[in-house]
């Protein structure tokens, strides 16, 4: 989706009336387009004024204590590195994650599903790229690297007996936006471009990104809490489910 199409949808994005499909496309565009992102933020803040202008209801007396207890409890559980409010872009953070895990995740996932020589070569190339990003990240990091809060992996298996496979890494954190990376290998070129989605138990879906060919990687940051999304789906150009998997391993 280009800027023109995105801006045509930003008003409805601001008031949350976009369809799931358009929402995914718009959010994917906003990940890399600073201009549209700025406009989206301004429109959303303006929309918030509508809610703030409502006559206000009285708060239940015990709600404050429940809110305080909930946030305090989460803070105690989830802040191993209190006060470090650094924010990094997804690729560098993912590189750090992969490095911290002590494995070339993408390569490992590819190798597990696709032991063909050409796909392993792809894996090795990507592993090298990730390692380079990791080094750059660690070099620039102002504080010692710390393990992100939750890192989960999913192995994607074929949904219909066809070729191909893949994997996904999901990072949820209090310090930066939640991130997901989806990588595929060995999928037929005839089905490209493929699209990756996250799905929640309730059926809600979040668009991750486009996979331009059968051996690709896509990643994205989300404002949403990705812990609510357990499943990964990869669909072909006609929307048919080709790969699926579930996050179930905490590193």
């Amino acid at each position: 989706m280009d800027c023109l199409a995105t801006r045509d949808r930003l008003t409805e994005y601001a008031v949350s009336t976009l369809s799931s499909h358009d929402l995914g496309e718009v959010e994917a565009h906003l990940q890399w387009c600073a201009g549209c992102r700025k406009e989206a933020r301004e429109l959303r803040e303006a929309a918030a004024m509508v809610g703030m202008s409502l006559p206000q209801s009285e708060l239940p007396s015990e709600l404050e204590q429940r809110v305080v207890r909930g946030v305090r409890s989460a803070a105690v559980r989830g802040h191993p590195s209190k006060g470090r409010t650094w924010v990094r872009r997804s690729l560098t953070i993912l590189a750090a994650v992969i490095g911290i895990l002590g494995m070339t995740t993408a390569g490992w996932l590819f190798a597990r599903q696709q032991p063909l020589e050409n796909q392993l070569r792809t894996s090795e190339r990507q592993a090298k790229q990730f390692a380079e990003r990791l080094n750059a990240f660690l070099t620039n990091l102002p504080v010692p690297s710390t393990q992100p809060h939750d890192v989960s992996r999913a192995v994607l298996i074929t949904a219909s007996g066809g070729p191909g496979g893949g994997g996904a890494v999901r990072v949820t954190s209090t310090h930066f936006e939640d991130i997901v990376l989806v990588t595929v290998g060995g999928l037929p070129q005839t089905g490209a471009p493929y699209r990756a989605w996250l799905a929640g138990v309730s059926g809600k879906r979040l668009y991750v990104g486009k996979l331009s060919n059968g051996d690709s990687v896509t990643e994205r940051e989300f404002i949403d809490d990705l812990r609510l999304y357990r499943y990964v789906e990869v669909r072909d150009q006609k929307g048919r489910l080709v790969l699926k998997g579930a996050f179930n391993t905490t590193a």
Binding site: R66, G70, A74, T174, F176, E177
Partner: peptide
């Protein structure tokens, strides 16, 4: 309300 404050804490760095 509880979810909003929890989310605000999670995304406070942003």
């Amino acid at each position: 309300t509880q979810d909003v404050f929890l989310m605000a804490w999670r995304k406070a760095a942003r």
